[in-house]
Amino acid sequence: MSAAARRAEQQRTRYRIAEQRARSEQAGGKPSEDEASRMVAEFYARGGQVTVCPPADEAEVEHPKR
């Protein structure tokens, strides 16, 4: 990929992120706990899967030594 193509792709990515942020802020910003729970439930109902980290109830917790 040429340098110009990389710059163009980076610009498109920045634009998409800015656009998503603007839509989020227009929609009221951070969702309430109930709304977040509903969105997560819909995500799983549609077949969504966690691919980056395990769900909180399955994660191993390391406690620092005191």
Rank of each mutant, 00 (worst) to 15 (best):
M1Y: 09
S2L: 10
S2Y: 08
A4S: 14
A5P: 00
A5H: 05
R6W: 10
R6Y: 09
R6E: 15
R7A: 15
R7M: 08
A8M: 11
A8H: 10
A8N: 11
E9G: 07
E9L: 13
E9F: 08
Q10D: 11
Q10I: 03
Q11W: 09
Q11A: 15
Q11P: 00
Q11I: 07
Q11D: 12
R12K: 15
R12T: 10
T13D: 08
R14L: 13
R14W: 09
I17V: 14
I17F: 08
E19H: 02
E19Q: 08
E19P: 00
E19A: 11
Q20I: 00
Q20R: 07
Q20D: 04
Q20C: 01
S24I: 07
S24H: 07
Q26I: 02
Q26C: 01
A27P: 01
G28E: 02
G29D: 05
G29H: 04
G29C: 03
K30I: 10
K30C: 07
P31Q: 04
P31L: 02
P31N: 03
P31M: 04
P31E: 03
E33F: 10
E33N: 09
D34R: 06
A36S: 04
R38N: 08
M39P: 01
V40K: 09
V40C: 05
A41N: 11
A41D: 15
A41G: 08
A41S: 13
E42I: 01
E42A: 02
F43R: 09
F43P: 02
Y44F: 15
Y44G: 04
Y44A: 09
Y44E: 12
A45S: 13
A45I: 05
A45Q: 14
A45E: 14
A45C: 05
G48F: 05
Q49G: 03
V50L: 13
V52P: 02
C53T: 10
C53D: 05
C53M: 12
P54A: 03
P54T: 00
P55K: 03
P55S: 10
P55G: 05
P55R: 02
A56Y: 05
A56D: 08
A56P: 03
A56K: 08
D57R: 09
D57M: 06
D57S: 13
E58M: 02
A59K: 06
A59H: 04
A59P: 04
E60R: 12
E60G: 08
E60Q: 13
E60L: 12
V61F: 14
V61P: 03
V61D: 07
V61H: 09
E62V: 14
E62T: 13
H63L: 15
P64F: 13
P64I: 12
K65S: 15
K65W: 14
R66D: 14
